[in-house]
């Protein structure tokens, strides 16, 4: 049973809220990375509107880099977010979700890919840089924010518990 597709307005509002959280969590980089990944991988992708999702992903990436003031060259995060949101949207359109497990599995793969792509593109843009531990917090908290996003996007869908 496929969950119903969220309305566009709801998804835009959720993206706006996520973007606001990205800004507000700037003093806490680890938490900001989690919010940023959740926004890009769960809220922004829209199977029928890739351009809208791309714009939200770009906004998330630029906001993160601008709040962190990453020297010396910005743009790598936004490029990675754009790429990931396109991949996520294409995946959602190609293989529609059947339930929370698929959602979690797909998010896990996308998160790993996002982490790798993010570091690679930031390295391309700004040169070698320390990885830090944000990626680990993102992966560890993935069940939490994946479940939260699922509930926000599909409030009427089953949670997977029986």
């Amino acid at each position: 049973m496929r969950p119903p597709t969220p309305t566009t307005l709801r998804q835009h509002l959720l993206c706006a809220g996520g973007l606001l959280l990205v800004v507000l969590t700037a003093p806490f980089p680890s938490l900001q990375a989690v919010v940023h990944s959740a926004l890009v991988l769960t809220l922004a992708p829209q199977p029928g509107a890739p351009l809208t999702g791309a714009l939200w992903a770009l906004a998330a990436g630029w906001t993160l880099e601008l709040t962190l003031r990453l020297p010396p060259h910005l743009g790598g995060t936004a490029w990675a977010d754009l790429t990931l949101v396109l991949i996520a949207g294409w995946t959602a359109a190609r293989w529609p979700l059947d339930g929370p497990k698929d959602w979690l599995t797909r998010l896990t793969a996308l998160t790993v890919l996002h982490v790798l792509l993010l570091h690679w593109m930031v390295r391309l843009a700004a040169g070698p840089h320390p990885w830090g531990w944000s990626w680990l917090w993102t992966l560890l908290s993935l069940p939490l924010w994946a479940w939260g996003a699922w509930r926000l996007l599909h409030p009427a869908a089953p949670t997977g518990r029986r």
């Binding site: 770009l58 010396p72 060259h73 743009g75 790598g76 490029w79 040169g127």
Partner: peptide, 9 residues
């Protein structure tokens, strides 16, 4: 964005 990133620091 790719071109901008590839231009580098």
């Amino acid at each position: 964005h790719g071109a901008w990133v590839l231009v580098g620091p």
